[in-house]
Design a protein around this nucleic acid. Structure first.
Lengths: 399, 399
DNA sequence: ATTTATGTTCGGCACCTTGACGAACTATAA
DNA sequence: TTATAGTTCGTCAAGGTGCCGAACATAAAT
């Protein structure tokens, strides 16, 4: 079931890649049109398809007739030839999705963490993934790649979790290795907000854009960015850690150094405690948002201030990276009332037109992003020539 | 003298690219070692080199003997086979460099703008470029690409100048077309700070890094970023417009909307007027910096505050994009006293290790960056297969 | 029957590789 | 000094792979 038999038949790999690309993008296609779209000759395409069919990645889809001329045999990516698993490993919820190699979601489910952490959490996730695969009727061997999205900083070199604020013990454990052993395939890990950014750019409201940002406002706050179609991860995987932007609260305070100035202002905890300080009593962010929308006073000004600070954040993101669109997500960020307040605030802070929208995928954004990562990685591993740095490097400075 | 005779013999192009890449990176090389480094066979390499030699891009460099075995003929990129021109079109200074295709600088010079602007400025630049080429003894036909770096927002779609704060009239004029006509070749344009970021990453103190940031503090303030080795330009070319970050001054003020809150605080004008307001009288930033270093009081606190705000900026950049290194440039930013103040301030604002360094190229950073852009573009145009999107896209969302 | 589009067969070409070999040079020992 | 061994460079010849264009067979609508 493997495609590359020996080493570089580079040219064929390029052709295979081109064919798969069209098949994945546009669904069932005949060899003739495939040839047109890729620019390859018809009979090269026949050979490519034959190889793909023999190795099982592609199968006959049907016969298209009704148009003038000979009816065409269309081919499609064989759904059941391989699967990827995406996991959104959150603080309170684990979401799991199984996706076929062609990109359709076969199974999606949501489970409470039940307060588990560390080793117990990883074990639980492991059990859940197994259960999902079983329920979807997919044998383990068919799972070719896994992606886990989780809060925390992911080391871009090792791919391991370096710092997981909301999952205290988990940090040191090797999530990747554990799940990899269980699934018997490669597993990659990514920051949850980065994944969400990618998710929205795949199937959400920033779909198809090359340059987009996703801001999550919730328990924690975070930023995910795509530049030139790729995630911005940062040298140490800490890109998008906007908690530490130096406004919203006094950046010199101990608390700001610890949790971040901005997060202590507009993170969930910050909102709750500002509400309490304003005499609003005990309430969670949802309740405060609802009270604010109803016009109740301590809540309204707390949320107003939250919106004001969020607007500052948005203006900052826009100034630094000029995304085509900024998507607001997270439990707090998604709330329409907050969004309307932020939208009203923006023109007071900038003359630029900022395209701001609420997450279209809602709580699923991170999960969809995890799937996207897994799928993309899988497609590249299977169908892309491995070594081809097509851009030239700058000449070595030798003077 | 052109390489691609007809349509894509893709495979050969890949081989040519590989050979040129090694020759450019490592200088004179024999065919045998070239074969080893590229992984191609000696035979193929001989053919590739023959083609490159016949078309004039490569020539014999010499004979290496003294080692065991037959002595080798080494080949090198033919310096005089093509040139690129880089221009730093600043507000007060025009810098021009001519660089050979192999990356060595043939001619570099600096000229005052003499207060010219708009059409007059462009004409002047044009004359200067001609003069430089003449002085360097390079015929026009040998110039294959030009790159202009200039303040202002460069539209990534059209490549044209959209907004040039320090060159009022110039904005509407078509710099690219004018110089292109004069030189008879393609000309690209880029923001000056972006170019400087690239320059430092080519030959400066962030050399070789994939992820780096350059902050220019001077007449204006700006940020250039490289992520995954590529410039971050933004959807509308406005990435790095940190003037508009909402701190340093009240972001709601009319002035902040116009010129940007942060720029009105730590841009040259802002520093000068804060100094004046503190009773320091008339002085330019250089004088204020010197006075501050000498410990004179109104200057010292003005510069202290500038350093404090610059530190906030640096922490913001670090939080958002986590670069491996942040380089400080510009007339103000390069000053060692300011740098030491900023370095002292950083630990009070963050626990992260931020690698901050002064520009190694100084006022040449933008020019070197312009050269880098021109060279890279040229190499890709000449020696890289044109159509090869090696990364696979995500499948179209079809559900 | 004509037209039009699909898919296959065939001949040819471009490119790459392998293995063998001659050329050129150093090192070493008689 | 001279011969011999060992190493590396570069070329030649043979063989394979993959691509293309053209011609052709196939199949369906008009």
């Amino acid at each position: 079931m493997t495609l590359r038999q020996s080493l570089p038949p580079v040219l064929r790999q390029i052709s295979v890649r081109a064919a798969m690309d069209v098949l994945l993008q546009e669904g069932p296609t005949s060899r003739a049109t495939l040839a047109k779209k890729t620019g390859l000759s018809k009979q090269t395409m026949s050979e490519v398809i034959r190889a793909l069919e023999e190795s099982g990645w592609v199968r006959v889809n049907g016969i298209v007739s009704g148009k003038v001329g000979r009816s065409a045999i269309t081919y499609e990516v064989a759904e059941d030839s391989g699967y990827a698993v995406g996991v959104d490993l959150g603080a309170t919820t684990i979401r799991i999705a199984v996706v076929s190699i062609s990109g359709s979601i076969v199974h999606e489910s949501e489970h409470p963490t039940g307060g588990r952490a560390g080793e117990a959490l990883i074990g639980h996730m492991h059990d859940l993934v197994e259960k999902c695969l079983h329920r979807a009727g997919i044998p383990f061997e068919k799972v070719l790649l896994g992606a886990v999205a989780t809060p925390g900083v992911v080391d871009p070199v090792s791919g391991h979790l370096a710092l997981a604020p909301n999952m205290a013990e988990t940090g040191s454990l090797d999530v990747v290795r554990r799940l990899g052993e269980a699934l018997g395939c490669e597993v990659v890990i990514e920051n949850d907000v980065n994944a969400a950014a990618l998710g929205e750019t795949w199937k959400g409201c920033s779909a198809g854009l090359e340059t987009a940002a996703f801001i999550a406002l919730g328990t924690g706050i975070g930023l995910g960015m795509l530049v030139n179609g790729k995630l911005v991860k940062g040298a140490r995987g800490a890109a998008g850690e906007i908690s530490y932007l130096p406004f919203g609260a006094d950046p010199y305070r101990e608390d700001s150094l610890e949790r971040g100035a901005l997060e202590s202002a507009i993170g969930a905890q910050g909102i709750v405690s500002r509400y309490r300080a304003a005499g609003g009593g005990e309430a969670d962010t949802r309740q405060i948002l609802e009270a604010a929308e109803a016009g109740e006073e301590p809540a309204l000004s707390v949320i107003r201030e939250t919106a004001r600070l969020a607007a500052l954040l948005i203006v900052s993101v826009d100034a630094m990276t000029d995304p085509e669109k900024i998507v607001l997500g997270g439990n707090v960020g998604r709330h329409p009332f907050l969004l309307s307040l932020i939208r009203a605030e923006l023109p007071r802070l900038t003359r630029r037109m900022i395209s701001l929208e609420p997450s279209a995928l809602g709580p699923r954004a991170t999960l969809i992003g995890a799937i996207a990562i897994a799928l993309n990685q899988l497609h590249n591993a299977l169908f892309s020539p491995q070594e081809l740095p097509s851009e030239m490097r700058l000449p070595q400075a030798r003077d």
